[in-house]
Structure formats: C-alpha cells, structure tokens
Computed example of a mutant assay.
Amino acid sequence: MNNHKRFHTLPVYDQRFHTNYSFTVPKRYSNLKFINGGSQGVVASADDSVDKRRVAIKKMHQPFVIPLSAKRAYREFVLLSSVKHPNVGNLFPVFIYLSNKIKTIIQTFSVFTPQDSKDTFQDVYLVMELMDHNLHEVTQHLALDHMKISFFIYQILCAVHHLHREGIIHRRMTGYVVTRYYRAPEVVLGLPYSEKVDVWSIGCIFAELINRRVLFPGRDKVDQWNKIVKVMGTPSEEYISQLIEPIANYVRAVPYFSAIPIEEIIPDSNFLQCTERADMHLTANDARRLISKMLAFDPNERYSVAEALQDPYVKRWFREDEVNGPLSSTRFNWDAAETDCSLAELNSLIFDEVKRIESTHDVFGGL
C-alpha cells in the first residue's frame, strides 16, 4: 500500500499562544490535543485505534536546519536504537526525563516520518507512553508519603544506573540539554563532569517532591550559581583551589554565604509525619541524609548512583534484576553519536535511522 494513503494531517491548537500546528500521522491516531511545546518540539496526546489507548506524539522541531540540533537529533536516535532497560523488557527503548516527568521510564512505542525520500525529509515523530502527571502537578496536587517518595527516587536511580552502565550520562552535548534548575555546580561553572551530575539532578528532584517547589530556580546561568550558594553555602577553599584560575576568581568574587542547615532547607513540616517509620528508615532525617549526600558540592564527596541505591532510605526496594540487569546487546556507540558530519550527511544518517526503526515496528497497525 502507498504510505501516503496511510497518513492523514490533523490540526493541533495551542490555546495559550493561539498557535496552530499540523501533525501528519498514521491513520491509527486521531483526536489530537496539544500538551506542551518547547525548543525540542511539540507534544500532543492522541487516541490509538489499534492498541486502544491514549498516547503522546512528539513532533520534533526542524531537527535538520542547525548542525547542533541535527547532531542532537542523531544522538537521540542512536540512543533509541541501543538502550533498553530490564523494566521495559523487549518493548521499545526508553527515554529518561530527569527534569519534568513523574515516572522515570517512558516507553517509546514507535518512530516515523511521513516523508519517503531524503530529498523531502523534514519531519520526525515519536509515539510515546502518555503520562498522567508531570513533577509540578504531582508536587502541587498529590500528597506523597515516605513510601511513595522513596520508591520514586529508587526508580530514578535504577534507570539512571542502567544508563551509566551503558556509558551514557543524562547531561550530554551542551549545557542547555538539562533544565537549568537541575544542573550540578560543575555544569553551571562549565567544568569537566562525570556521571555524578545526574546524582545532583536527582537530589534536586528529591527535594522538590518534599518541599513542593523548585530548590534552585535560577533565571540564568549566573543566577543559578547564586541560588545554589545562597542555600548550600559558598564552597570550601579546598574545592575552589582545584578550579582553573578564571573560574576560581569568579567564585571568590561572589559574596560569601554560609550553608543553610538541611533541617531548614527541608523542614519537618514538609513531610507527612504520620507516615514516618523509623524501623524502615523512612523518616525526615533519613530523607535529608540522602539528599545531603546527593547535593554535595564536591563531586568527590557526592554519592554515586550505586552508593545512593545502597542508602537505607531507598535500599528496601533494591532488586538485583532491576539494578544490575543485562545490558543491551547493541551498546550505545559514542563514535557514531559523535560523528562530525555536514548538515546534509546528518540529515541522511537520521533519515536512514528513522526508516530502519520504522521497519522493525508496526507503525501503521495494519491500517
């Protein structure tokens, strides 16, 4: 069957900004409703008549116009081809959203493009699991007890641990990739970084779940640093002395702040105290201890993901098959992802990858 007859174009309307978008999707999808939009694309919910469920469809914003965005798009598809997590089994690979999703593992069901040649190639769509709540909605509308919080943090740690074992750090490519509020100090300062930047991000989310507000809501890079030091205190001279001179001078030039005690940063009143279980290490003190280890300024003093998984606040959920399950048979290839190609070459690589993924998944559901 001609693929063009298997697609239809549907409107998606953003009421906030009175903007219309058009989605060209397989005919199995209907009743599209705008969810959100950003620098990476527009997301709409849709009815899937084949699998009888509501899904999210992300239309990527012209990923082939600027070399950086094209390279980022290619990385995303290389990741899609290689990363699987034991919790997902043999379904499609997963996305990890540290900054704004309440569930740590988001299934991606399919990827497609309505164009059938490289000459006309311009749109990429991802069909994903539809989430009921984002982090802001959870913190504002749901009361989370210690059991739920500890399990949620365990889930994030599990998923990120799997990515680290695959050789992938969530913060990748540019400082813009991770939402500013969740950037580790070394990322804010533009320093070399390790996988421990992800632990800082998880610690920020952990605190946000409890306090019901963003811990470090910086307006820009400079304000982000100021927000961090006003809460966590100016880093030690031992830490500063390890920085290159221009950055060390900048850090010293910022007014000195003493660290706010963790009991004031995350007060008892922000916990559901009736859910505390000292015998299970599910108390405010246990939560604060774990957050303190995750938000250590110096990465050398910060927990690794593996260490965090052994912390008493989350260890009760530990399952060997989840934490140390088998790695993907096709490991993530950084050489492929780091390819230094022209825009036209990246366009061609992405088109080939999308079409390869299309060929291994039931995009049309028999329609």
Rank of each mutant, 00 (worst) to 15 (best):
E301H: 13
V363M: 02
V94G: 00
G167T: 05
I228K: 01
Y239F: 14
V222S: 09
K103N: 14
P11F: 04
K101L: 13
R171E: 06
P93Q: 04
L10D: 12
L10R: 10
V83E: 00
G218F: 04
S150A: 10
I35H: 06
F257R: 04
T104N: 09
A44S: 14
F318Q: 03
R213P: 13
Q242M: 15
L367Q: 03
R54V: 14
V12G: 02
F332R: 02
R183G: 00
F332L: 05
D198W: 04
A248W: 03
Y239N: 00
Y193R: 07
I153W: 02
Y256R: 13
L144T: 11
Q140G: 07
I291C: 05
I168K: 00
L272H: 05
D198C: 12
D223M: 03
G203S: 12
T19P: 00
D352R: 08
V188L: 05
R356M: 10
M60L: 14
T19D: 09
T330F: 07
H141A: 09
V88S: 06
H141G: 11
S342A: 02
H61V: 12
L79W: 00
V160N: 05
I350A: 02
A248Y: 04
C158T: 15
P185H: 07
E353M: 13
K196V: 00
F351E: 00
G167I: 06
D268N: 08
Q273A: 13
C274E: 15
